[in-house]
Each structure stands twice: as C-alpha cells, then as structure tokens.
Write a protein that binds this DNA or RNA. Structure first.
Lengths: 256, 256
DNA sequence: TAGTGGTCTAGACCACCGC
DNA sequence: CGGTGGTCTAGACCACTAG
C-alpha cells in the first residue's frame, strides 16, 4: 500500500483493471466484502472507492445483485445538427433514438426558462416534454422539453402529446410564419434534478450535461426555447464549423 | 427527519440555505461536529453530505480552517470566439484571463492527441502548455495545451515558452502558409487528470469539462490540435450560430 | 433464506491551521 | 496548543435479489 490514500489506491487499482479489460464491460466485480478482504481495508473504504468509480461512469451497482462494469456506450450529440437536412422537409428527426412526448400543453413557464425566453416568470407557455430512448435497450438517453410562446402554439396540434411528423422547428416555422435564423446554445454540467436522475437512471452522485437552446427569427423574436439533459459520463458534444476569414463573430470573450 | 435518506436530507437542507443566501458566498459553515449535533446524525453522514455539495461546486473545504460557501464565479466559454475579431491582427487574445506558457517544445504526442491529429502515437510534435488565470484572484481557470505538427512549428519561435504577440492561430497561419478554414470541437465532462486537478485546485470528486479542438486548412491538413480543461462546476459553454436556410450541415446524428 | 449493496453509527487517529 | 477537516475502522441494520 504505497504512499497513497487507501480509497484512491483501491479506486485507481480497479480503474486500471477496468480500462485494461481485466474486467470487461458488463462483468461483475467481486463483492464489496471480497474487495475489502483482498485490499485489506474496511468496507467503508471500498464503498468510497466504488462511489468514485460510479460517479466517473465506470461502474454501476445494483442492490442485492452486485457491481458491474458499465456497458452503456458514449453518445455523440452534434451541436446544430438538428437544423441540418431536416430543412428538406423530409420525414422526422433523423435520430437513432426513439422519441416520446410524455406530456404537452399549457403550463406556467419554469423560472430558468422564463429568463431564456425573456418573459415574466408567471407567463403561460406551451411545453412539450420528451424522452429519447435507445430503441434496443430501452435506456432513456435524453430528457428534455421544448417551450413555445402561446402566440405561436396555443390551440394548435403542438398542444397534443404526440410526436410530430417532422422536425419540431419546421412545424413552428409554419405556424409562426417566420423562419429560424439564429440560435444560442448554453451548455452546463451539474447535478441532475430529481426528475432527470430518475428518468436517466443515474446513480447518486452522477452529473448531467444540460443544454438550453434559444432559437430566434430574423427580427429577434424568440420562436422556441428547449432544454435537454444527458448523463454527463455518457455524452460528448461535437461542434463542427467553418472559420470566417474576417472578423464576423460578436466581440465576446475569447481564449487563446 | 422526513422519509428521506439522512445524508440527502442534510445536503438538501444546506443546499437550500446556501441558495437562499442564508449562507452567503465566502461564508463559513458550521464545523462538521456542530452540524452533526444540529442534525443529530453521525460525523460520517455529515461528511457524505458535504462531499456531495463539494462535488456540486457549492462549497469548498480547507483542512484545519473550515468549510466555506464557494465564491468562485461562473465563467462563460464562447465556442468559436477565438476566431472572432482576432482576424484583425490586432494585439493578443482578447481574454480577461492572464495567459502563461508553462512549457513549450518538442515532445512525443500523447495518445489521445495522436488520434485527433491523425498521426501515429510515437510521433514528435511541438506542444505549448498553457495556464490561464484570473488576474485578480490568481486562480487558475483553464489548463491546456496546443499541439502543432513539426513541419509547421519546428525551429520557430513557437518552440519557446513565451506568450505570442497575437492569437496563436495567426502565427500558425503565417508559418504554415495556410488559412484556418474549419474546426471540430469535441466537449466532454469527466474526472480530471492529476495534473488538471492540482492546477485547477479541484477538490477530490470534482469533474472537469474537457475540449479537444481540431483546426484544419482548406485542403484538410490539420494545422493545430488543442486541448483545454475547466472546472466543470465553474464553466458554461456558449455557442451562437446562424441557422442555414437550406440543408448544408453534414448529415450526422440529429435530435429533435 | 442467503447474499448483495445501501445506510448509518461511534470512535479513533492524522494533518493542517491559526493563535 | 486547540480546533478543524481528512482518513479509516469495525460493526450494525435495512432493502433488494435470487434461488
């Protein structure tokens, strides 16, 4: 037991065994008491090490069954891809995830969405709450909602909790008579809400990546604000873009 | 003590007190034993609750001194802003952070960078390791490095551990005789490396947001790969963009 | 029913801080 | 030096799973 904290030593050791394939994805780790015997530390120390690996997304524990190496795969989330080929009006969302609207209709706008929509916190809006799940495993991969101004969506089919036949923004463009021209995405990592933790099946201590997406028309009108969350350890965000030849971007913060 | 786990109850209670301003930023929380007395739970349970709040970035503990409400502010990182007004060749990086090159020169490319640079893992490259810190507090806010192909940077002033007089990409463009035309950013949240944890002053259990940035010239040549990390609880990524009128984006993954 | 992880306790010792 | 957080222990009890 070198000059290192015991729980870190245990965590590092197990992490190495997992990364090296000594424990393959889906494999069952030794029980906590076996690990305690093997590393010659107390059960609490083992639990602390396992908690760390859990929060790193490397393992998953099931009460009464055991602790297993995570086999959930990493998902890529392409920033801006939602506005890609969908313009061609063809079919639905070109996602490999199964889309479900769990709730839709009028509701008072949540505070943090009110800020993004630039409206007062007690305004009503049309909200469409969605879940996206892996069609094979059934695992919920994304939870979120879209919020639309009453002026655009009230009294329309967007109040129905049904998946729309094409990309949502195309529906909104039709109903609003305006075109989506710019957007602002704000990404954050942080602790999940209770709802998110339950839906995504996150172990305690796990984090989510959270996106607030604001879409505007040419005249600056906000057409839609949407909010999404993913398990932080299972998502990566990919952003591909062209670099302008002359200064065109807003003079904001800039690193490097 | 309602129907709730004790450590969650304590964490929720303290979180509420912090958010409500009952404990202001910078304020000292009661000692662990005081909290244990107050909540009538054991010290271990208090520690578990505090560990959670620490990983959420709400508090900070200093051995021998106490536990304090975090006062570090949230930083916004604008995706793509680095290529903004810098085009005007004017001065340095328009950042409000202090830039420091801690090391520069030839080195064997790290494995994960080799993948991004599309070169074999034992190739040598020019690496420039940087730290960005808050000029007021001295707090290191970002740690990272830029990796450049030998063909571009070997034997040039980019091997010197000195901050360059203008944006790095302008230097590279001059030396390479090519223009940055496209980039791909991949963002991930995850556990920090030891080096990152030390530099950013992260408490154990904290996470980082990690960026791999790949920049290419018109002909597809990779001009630069850079890597950066921030404390996950203190950074948000902002991406502002125009939405194309017709399908232009690559037909990739798309949600919603 | 036996085995597993989940929670919690009481108490010990150490390392660091500030007086 | 006393007070603080950091680490660790041994052991108890509960909740869930599987056979």
């Amino acid at each position: 037991m070198p000059a290192q904290l015991k729980n870190q030593y245990v965590a590092n050791s197990l992490r190495g065994d997992i990364r090296s394939g000594r424990y393959a994805p889906g494999a069952k780790l030794p029980t906590e008491s076996e690990l305690a015997d093997h590393f010659k530390v107390s059960a609490v120390t083992i639990r602390s090490a396992l908690a760390q690996l859990r929060s790193e997304g490397l393992i998953e524990s099931m009460q009464g069954r055991g602790t297993f190496v995570q086999s959930r795969k990493l998902r890529s989330r392409y920033s801006r891809a939602r506005y890609g080929r969908a313009r061609s009006d063809r079919q639905l969302l070109s996602s490999d995830l199964e889309h479900r609207i769990v709730e839709a209709g009028r509701q008072v706008v949540p505070d943090h969405i009110a800020v993004a929509m630039e409206i007062s916190p007690d305004t009503e809006v049309i909200a469409r709450h969605r879940l996206l799940s892996d069609p094979v495993t059934g695992q919920i991969e994304e939870i979120g909602a879209s919020y639309l101004p009453l002026g655009i969506a009230a009294g329309t089919y967007l109040e129905d909790p049904v998946v729309v036949p094409k990309a949502l923004f195309l529906c909104v463009e039709e109903l609003a008579g305006k075109t989506y021209t710019s957007a602002r995405d704000v990404w954050r990592a942080g602790p999940p809400t209770v709802e998110q933790a339950v839906a995504l099946g996150l172990p305690s201590g796990a984090a989510v990546v959270h996106l607030i997406h604001v879409a505007r028309a040419q005249d600056g009108t906000i057409l839609e604000v949407s909010e999404s969350a993913w398990s932080a350890t299972h998502v990566q965000i990919i952003d591909e873009y062209d670099i302008p030849e002359e200064a065109e971007l807003p003079p904001q913060h800039s690193d490097i």
